[in-house]
Amino acid sequence: MNRILKVSYGPALLVFLILMARFTFPNKMTFIIELAIFSIYVMGNNILYGYLGMVSFGQPFYLGVGAYATAIFLAHVGTNPLVGMLLSLLMGLVVGLILGPAFIRLRGDYFALINAATCAIGMFTIEKLLLPITRGDDGLWYRARMSQIPFVDIRMPDKFFLFALAIFLIVLILYNFMDKSALGSSFRAIRVNESKMKFLGYDTFKIRWIGFTLASILSALSGSLYAINFGFVNPSLAEPHRAAEVLVATLIGGAGTVFGPFFGTLAFLGIKDLVSQYIAHWELAVGILTLLVLFRFSKGIWGNTEAIMNEKFGKKRNRSVKKLLTDKAAT
């Protein structure tokens, strides 16, 4: 319980700040909703890229799986968005478990590309082969079919905002918990020296499989939230071209950190929002920013902030062990 509390402070503070922002800039609510949803997607990719060092050029596929699972359910089967969401989580799990073993044994470059191929093939399947169910390019509309859920009527944008933020908070707490768990350390260790991990007795294949599946689940959850938010889904949400967005956001925010995905998303969506008000395209600004991060600030926004804070306030890690050591030295 104590540990749950410990990993909750940071996320709670962040969500509090987001709430403040929402009331300070009331006309930015749509932006903030997207910020929360996209952050979850980036958090998924961050497990792959940041923790495990695997680049995937096909993350939109996993987003699309989640979005379409919810959309198809709401358009053809049921009316409860929560059931749709559960379905998406399940699909994310299944897809991750099935594709994982085939993909993660590949070397980095192949892993990136097979995901791109999967995305192209998957979206083709959704768009063309499942045309009767997904209505292809026209997209699925189901806003009117969504029923009310207990407590919050998430069909209202300002209620959905609270709902999305609550999900974001839960996910972020779990994410922070994962980061501080043995699993988080194992991910980071595998990233730099997988072979050594094997010789410490860890089944690195399974650990990477877990990471891949978690990424898939988070992407699917994000997709599902998009689907509920829009009340409409079409293939453009998950085009293979959009694979760059999530990678770039991960990188800018600070790969391999807990809060990096949020700040990366903030920077990325912010730039997109700002730039497109003036010159209508974001690639130039984002490309330059990415190069800058790659060569100058390799830890990204949050990674560097964290480093500065550590410097200023001193590292507080392993206090218990240090106490143990000084106690021992005393006796």
Partner: peptide, 9 residues
């Protein structure tokens, strides 16, 4: 890839 994005820009 970033260079590619810049080029597109």
């Amino acid at each position: 890839f970033s260079v590619f994005l810049i080029g597109i820009g």
